[in-house]
Each structure stands twice: as C-alpha cells, then as structure tokens.
Design a protein around this nucleic acid. Structure first.
Lengths: 251, 251
DNA sequence: CGCCCGTTTGAGATCGTTCAAGCCAGGTGG
DNA sequence: CCACCTGGCTTGAACGATCTCAAACGGGCG
C-alpha cells in the first residue's frame, strides 16, 4: 500500500509476507501490519557459497539471520584448532542468538552449500521490538527453542550409542525437512560424514559403519549423500527412547 | 529513603535492591527506578527442601525463577524412566527459560539442598518488559548465556574424556562460586556423584575413580562432598583445551 | 547395634577409536 | 580419451577408555 521503497538490491527484497517459510521463521505470529514493519529492516545479501562464513567467533554481533535457502552449520574452534560442530540450520531457521550474551558471537557460522540468508540487524530489530511486544515474544520463543534443541542434544551425546545417535539425527533432519514441505522419506545430506560425526560426538568411521549397518538392517538406502528411509518405524526404534513428555504422561 | 511498603509476606520481601546477588541476576543492568518496579512483581516462596520440585516437565510455565539460596538441578525424564541432568543452578542464576517455546516446561527442576528462589511470573514480567526495553535486553542476555552454557556442555560431552570432563566441571563450579564471593579453592558439592556422573555423561564409578586419580595426582583433596583444589594450574591443564579465542569473560 | 545409602575399588566385557588400506566419483591435464 | 590425482567415504583389525557387574566400605541415623 505504501509507496514501494527502492533498496540497493531490488531483486533481493525480503518480502516476508510472501515467503513460504514465514510460518517457521521469525515472522510467525506477527500481525500483517507488524510484518510489513519487520520486512523493512530485513537485509538480504548475495548468496553465500560453500565454506563462506556468515559470522565468526569473537566477532561483534551485528544481526541475527534467518536461513532463506541452503544450509549452514555453527561450530566452536578450540584452542588446539579442533572444531566442534554445534548445529545445522535449514531454511526458515534462525541463528545468531549466541551473540546476545556479550555482544560477540561465541561460535562461527558457515555455509554447507550455496545458501542465502535474511539479515536482521539487531540494533533496528531491538528498536522495533521495543515498540512491538509480539516481536519480543517471538524472539523469546525462538531462543527458547534453541535452548531446547541444545538440551536435547545433550541427552543424545550423553545417553545414546552410535546407532541411536545417527538414527535420532536422521529422524530429526527428516522431520525438519518435512515441516518445510520437502519429502520426509528421501533427502540429500548437505553435510559431510565428518561433520555429522563431529556433531554427534563420534568419528567419521563410526558414522560410515553405522550407515552400513542401517542398510544391512534395511532401515535405509544410502548412496553417497542421498538418503532414503525405508523403514520409519524401525529407524525410530533404533533411535531409542526420546524425551518422554509429548505423548505419554509419566507420573 | 522511600517509604517502606508492606506486602503480604513481609519477611519474604524481595528487595532486589539490597540483594547482594543482583549484579549476577536478572536485575543486572537495570536502573534503580526500573528495579523498584521489578521488585514489585517478585514473589518469594517458602524454601524448597531437598528433592522438592520447582517445576515439572510438561507443566504450564508460570514464571521464571532466580535462585536466592541453595542450589537446584534441571533434568529430562526419558520415556523409559531414566533421567538426564541438564544443569545445576547456583544463587543468582536464573532458570525456567525452556518454557518460552510453547508455554510448557520441557524439563523438571528440583532442589539439591534446601533452597529458596525468587519467582517472576511471566505474565507480569512480560507486561513489564513490554514497557521496559532494558528488561527485555537483560532477558535476552540471560537466555543467550543459557545457550552458551549448553553449547559449551556439548563440547564437553563430545570431545572430552573423563578426567577432562570432571576437571572442567569442578573449575566451572569454582569459578561460579567465586563470582558469588565464595572461596574458589574450597567448597562443598551439593550434588551426588550420581548427579555429577549423569550430568557429565559418565557413570558414578568413573566419577569416583577420577576423583581418586586427581587426589593421587595431588590436584585435589576430596573428602566426601568436600573439595579442596590443591593445584589450580594442574587442574586447568587436566581440563584440556577450552573454547578457543579470547579469555571467555562471562558477564 | 545394625541398617541404609552413597561411595570406593576391582576385574572383565564392550563399544567406539585408532591406524591402515583401499574404493569410488569427479575433476584436471597431458 | 585416458591417466592420474584428490577428497570423501568404506572397511578391517587391534587397542583402549569407559561401562558393567560385583563386592566391600563407612558415615549417619533410627
């Protein structure tokens, strides 16, 4: 309705309103009018290529980022040079919250494949949020979800064996892809075995062997990075007991 | 100064303003005037006894909680009844953020010893925050810190061996106690070996053995739950490489 | 005193790591 | 067009850290 605002890269206009990811992403739960205000501060950058970093550990935090296409990972770099992969981010997911604690990012984020993100400068975002309670609430929700994901990962890393870890990972990935309208039963991994291994606290050899076992058990068909889930129930069983809350009320 | 205000349980008056923990806790960074407003919504309850739960998984989230005295732990309950300890909370630390994602707590929190907390009902807190940007910012900081802690724990669980895990845990505890003005070199554990083991993704026997090793190496003196750090450098070395870059100053 | 719980200690079993070799697909240059 | 190379992946075999099972200890408390 208002006059179109020409920005530096018109082709990259954000248009949350029309984005099919908006129900997953930051705009979820915002009113249409609020959404338009939010759109105005979204900056989109040229796409990242595989390996390009979005932000780096210890760097000043300028923005949080919503993945628009492709996928990214975050990781810590230890003093001795080893990496620890903290998470993978798919379209519609928001990353960068680690920077709020002291204004600097604690981890590095880079692209696993060609990816593009919507950049939300925190200065403007907080300014807007100060006037828009629903935006604050959405940010709390997203950060709380990040906490939940990390804590479930703690459970995976401390309680589960190799089969359970990989099965849990694949099911989680499938479910996230599914909620984006993609096939749950068949997909391509954007990350290497090494990245999966690191994320799951295992070695690349163990990941490889476990994939082979799952194939032998007819749970999966694996061809390089292409995964097809043949037996969803079986894979779920292989993932072991989950966090018991959702379905069964335990008292 | 201002006139004293009598509230329903005068003995339990919050008095953030006079609380020596306020620099660590939620009030950090708030103006004196804002602080008085915050105080008015803080409810304090009678103390929790060992084992009493503050909130339970799947329960509706009513509040977030600041530890005033004693200590608590949070944990998931798996479908098969096993527990996974997610974290320990000391005086001045704030817990309950996991409930923001869907209005229900994902984990259970209970007291490790007699403990008291300040209860901050989220309804009123968010109402206040909507009018008080600095409160929002403080909440973001606290949630971001929780994310940071959880992610560092991911590193501990996936990269470190038993000695490194226990050393990291003890140093972290010492540092947190130190920032509360307590002795860094000598303290009592409020949690059992079983809880430590569970938290660190090990068995209680391994914790016990590792304590013995540290004693043999003259890094610690351990007597039941009483710990005295004899060689801080040695223990730091035993903790292995930390998260690289920067002297991660926790604020 | 005797029980109970949390803890310590020992010995064998196990799962994942480490080290090592080889495979496969894709890209490059002769 | 093919030889070669490279990086990512698979597979095998032996080792080792931690788990499991088992027994015993010791302080606190009825």
């Amino acid at each position: 309705m208002a006059a179109k605002k020409v920005i530096s890269f018109p082709a990259l206009k954000a248009a949350c309103e029309n984005c099919r990811l908006s129900t997953l992403c930051l705009p979820a739960g915002l009113e249409t009018t609020d959404l338009k205000t939010l759109e105005q501060l979204v900056r989109r950058q040229g796409p990242l290529r595989r390996g390009d970093s979005l932000f780096r550990a210890n760097e000043r935090m300028y923005a949080i980022y919503a993945v628009r296409a492709g996928s990214l990972r975050t990781y810590y770099l230890a003093e001795d040079g080893r990496e620890k992969v903290l998470g993978f981010y798919l379209p519609g997911e928001v990353l960068g919250f680690d920077g709020f604690s002291n204004g600097r990012h604690r981890c590095t984020a880079d692209a696993l494949e060609t990816a593009s993100v919507c950049e939300l400068p925190i200065g403007q975002l907080q300014e807007l949020a100060d006037r828009l309670p629903s935006l604050n609430h959405q940010l709390y929700r997203l950060m709380s979800q990040e906490i939940g994901r990390d804590q479930e990962m703690l459970l995976v890393l401390s309680d589960k064996n190799a089969q359970e870890r990989l099965a849990t990972f694949l099911l989680n990935l499938a479910q996230r892809l599914g909620s984006r309208g993609l096939s749950v039963g068949e997909f391509n991994l954007s990350m290497s075995r090494q990245n999966i291994a690191n994320y799951l606290g295992l070695t690349l050899e163990t990941i490889s062997r476990t994939f082979s076992q799952f194939q032998k058990q007819r749970l999966l068909r694996v061809e390089r990075r292409h995964i097809r889930i043949l037996d969803l129930e079986g894979l779920t069983a292989a993932a072991g007991p989950g966090v018991g809350m959702a379905s069964s009320q335990v008292t």
